[in-house]
């Protein structure tokens, strides 16, 4: 049978969604609290200062960055935790035994990642909005970077989950790859504040384009050229989705 297993895809999406909804405190409430804590700390540390070169106050600059950072981290966590838990607890065999093609599996996993990212992003926006007069200026940019960022990170989470054999392997990816790239991507500062060498290096950091582009959807200004950023994000996202699909298809690190 070559037709798509729509019910199977929908069921897998539901399973991946219910999984994160079962632990709401960890997946939704905790990122919201972390973002509020960041805001409080930076509010007192930075006062009423403006971000150099962007003509926007630091507080307003910070909120979209924090939102996007949480969205990216949660999109990654949704697929990576599902994969690594499945491997450790051996439940991944049920997925491999089911008549779900690589395309169907990817649609289900990545849709759940996007949903989790947007749920977390929306909760953060609702929690942080009272602290600021943030406006939405380009909805399409917020949606474009939000969706692409979630697909990018969801795919990365799938690949990291396939690669990892232990929770320690996964922790290594999270702490030594994802965290540094996120923190050094301009969530907390404008890259124009960096020395020229770091500015050049930042041009190779995909998180920089995702966070800066998402932020431009709110404050209508940023550090990256919009056309260049959209191109970079599209190429990186499509490439990573295709890579995740291919690795799933060949059963990389899943099948002997």
């Amino acid at each position: 049978m070559s037709s798509m297993n729509i019910l199977g895809t929908w069921t897998l999406f539901q399973r991946e969604t219910k999984r994160f909804m079962r632990v709401k405190m960890q997946t939704i409430a905790a990122p919201a609290l972390t973002a509020v804590l960041y805001l409080i700390v930076f509010h007192y540390a930075m006062g009423e200062r403006q971000v150099p070169g962007l003509d926007v106050d630091y507080f307003t600059f910070l909120i979209p960055g924090l939102m996007m950072m949480a969205m990216l981290q949660n999109a990654f966590a949704n697929t990576s935790s599902s994969m690594i838990m499945g491997k450790i607890m051996n439940t991944h065999v049920f997925l491999m035994m089911a008549p779900i093609s690589p395309t169907e599996a990817l649609i289900a996993f990545l849709s759940a990642s996007v949903l989790r990212a947007f749920v977390v992003g929306s909760v953060l926006l609702l929690v942080l909005l009272p602290f600021s007069d943030l406006q939405i200026t380009h909805v399409w940019m917020i949606l474009f970077y939000g969706v692409c960022g979630s697909l990018f990170m969801g795919s990365l989470g799938l690949i990291a989950g396939m690669w990892s054999k232990t929770f320690d392997d996964m922790s290594m990816v999270t702490n030594f790859v994802i965290m540094p790239l996120t923190f050094l991507s301009g969530v907390f500062y404008s890259v124009q504040q960096l020395p020229p060498l770091w500015q050049s290096l930042n041009e190779w950091n995909p998180f920089f384009y995702l966070i800066d582009g998402f932020r431009q959807g709110f404050i209508a200004t940023g550090d990256s050229d919009p056309v260049h950023a959209i191109g970079m994000v599209l190429v990186l996202t499509v490439s990573l989705v295709i890579l995740a699909w291919y690795l799933w298809k060949i059963g990389w690190k899943l099948k002997d």
């Binding site: 019910l7 199977g8 399973r15 219910k18 607890m89 051996n90 439940t91």
Partner: peptide, 24 residues
Amino acid sequence: PQEIAFDPFFSPREILHFTRGMYG
């Protein structure tokens, strides 16, 4: 399968509904 495997997030009833759904 020979090895015991279970999804700790769900109940047996939910697991059976999910499994059936995944088989279309």
